[in-house]
Design a protein around this nucleic acid. Structure first.
Lengths: 291, 291
DNA sequence: GGTAATTACGGGCTTCGTAAATATC
DNA sequence: GATATTTACGAAGCCCGTAATTACC
């Protein structure tokens, strides 16, 4: 169970191919084959089927553990070796829906304070945001999700990173203004199990809502919120979105959700203060928290 | 950051000596020295001071990460390789204060159901109980601690294991019947900061109470609850204990705690159902949960 | 000067790459 | 038969042990 082996195992699992994994990791096919064989021998369990390459149940379980382990390993390394970040650097990783104008304001304020600041925003999906902060790739993270009011998001625990809520807004079902549903005063999500939903895993995965069996109609693999809103407005399907976003979109109507009780919540992810990811990060975090 | 290196690093950190660590791990001094050197070179940070051997701040941080990582690694291995446990085996790990007569009853019932059952109880400290369950060394775990009413214990998250509360009882300050405090109707823990406390880390660490600065008077390193109760009864110091335990002890008086709000809570630790640690474990868990 | 960690060095094992073999679609 | 994984084999590197060296109490 060398981390090296886990890494190539994950690469194979992701690419679905030994050769692709080898290329990605700058190994030869042969090396990858040997590494997987070594891992399977060590665990005395087949992890992958060949032709087609797919995960066995044991492989599925290992995949889950391995990705967490590798992130934690990287986080540990970052925590130990973390140097004082260059004062002019500030990298913020965020999920698309975690964006908020207040972030722009805080950044603007920060830049007037210290002229030499090179800030950088990076869009990523949720787990990657948390991982980026834990490993020090990013100084701060902003993640969003839908939960019961004042319930924390269920984030992966990847080592040093801690999350605190910074904003909540009502969650609504976004629907085209012309859609029959638009005239409803409120809806119960479980009544909409038969409707078609827009599946946009990179923006707002309805598969992560605390409701089962919402059927995916259209799938959008991009990260742009505007596109998602546009798709909903064009009647391609329903999506659960934060209310402020829906109201700013002219041809979208937001239908309040009666059950389950749901809010859109944004959380700030950062490493504990004693490992300040640089002065700018601490300052920005303070600005966001006390907004 | 090979797990191998982390393991020997932990051994050195624990023993405070390269040679002792080498002996423990069946290596030579030399090998340990080289491994530590390799780790420090890899991380580009001194982790230990020599003569005396002690952790640097970076080493302290690594120690925290390393112990978690190794347990998670073991848990991952166990999760993947977990075979159907031998049907006659049932190992329960528990902290001393997690013991409850109901556990004996449940075990008795279980043994009448399946005569061939070899049950085994293992006392350990809290983190070790969780680790044992995660790695499959134990099928079930019972841990205890003091928290606010209906707050979960803050257990280390070591992979697959999940905890659910199974019992709560009032927490009281245990004091010798002759002690002046015994006549009080209730006390505020923060008023007792100047009193002497019995520090029994293996049984009920008052250092883990949500109160700061309780001074240790006597330290007891054993695991036996009776000894701790006896020490308190003999006037060697105060201890926070679950009320039922105190009331069964003739020469102890339990003084209710007015603040902070505190209960003694027992949680059952187990791996998710789909990885049943054997039929007996599932049955015992059900018995305990629905007691 | 004695205890304990480090450095030097050699042998054995691991691991990768090249190349040939083999299996599956 | 083409594509993709496995096996064979050799070279390079890694890691541990022995033994000599160095550093600190």
């Amino acid at each position: 169970m060398d981390p090296h082996l886990l890494r190539t195992f994950l690469a194979v699992a992701e690419t679905g191919s030994f050769s692709a994994a080898a290329e990605q990791l700058r190994y030869t096919q042969s090396a990858v084959s040997q590494q997987i064989a070594a891992l399977e021998a060590d665990l005395r369990t087949p992890l992958l089927t060949r032709r087609p390459v797919a995960l066995t149940p044991a492989g599925e379980r290992l995949r889950g553990h391995a990705s967490i382990l590798l992130v934690r390993l990287a986080a540990a390394r970052a925590d130990v070796t973390r140097a004082v970040a260059p004062p002019g650097r500030l990298i913020v990783a965020l999920t698309p829906l975690a964006w908020h104008p207040a972030l722009a304001d805080a950044l603007a304020l920060l830049r007037t304070e210290s002229a030499r600041l090179t800030a950088r925003l990076r869009l990523a999906e949720r787990d990657q945001v948390v991982a980026a902060v834990a490993t020090g790739e990013a100084d701060l993270g902003l993640v969003d999700g839908f939960t019961a009011p004042s319930d924390p998001l269920r984030l992966p625990d990847t080592g040093g990173a801690r999350a605190i809520g910074v904003a909540e807004s009502p969650a609504v079902v976004a629907v085209a203004a012309s859609h029959p549903l638009a005239r409803r005063r409120r809806v119960d999500l479980s009544d909409l199990a038969d409707a078609y939903w827009i599946d946009a895993p990179a923006v707002a995965a309805h598969t992560r809502l605390p409701v089962d069996g919402l059927r995916p109609g259209l799938r959008y693999d991009g990260q742009d919120v505007t596109v998602l809103a546009g798709l909903a407005a064009a009647g391609h399907g329903l999506a659960v979105l934060p209310e402020p976003l829906v109201t700013t979109h002219p041809s979208l109507t937001g239908v309040p959700i009666s059950a389950p009780r749901l809010v859109h919540r944004v959380e700030l992810v950062r490493i504990p203060a004693h490992l300040t990811g640089g002065e700018p990060a601490a300052r920005l975090a303070a600005l966001i928290e006390h907004r």
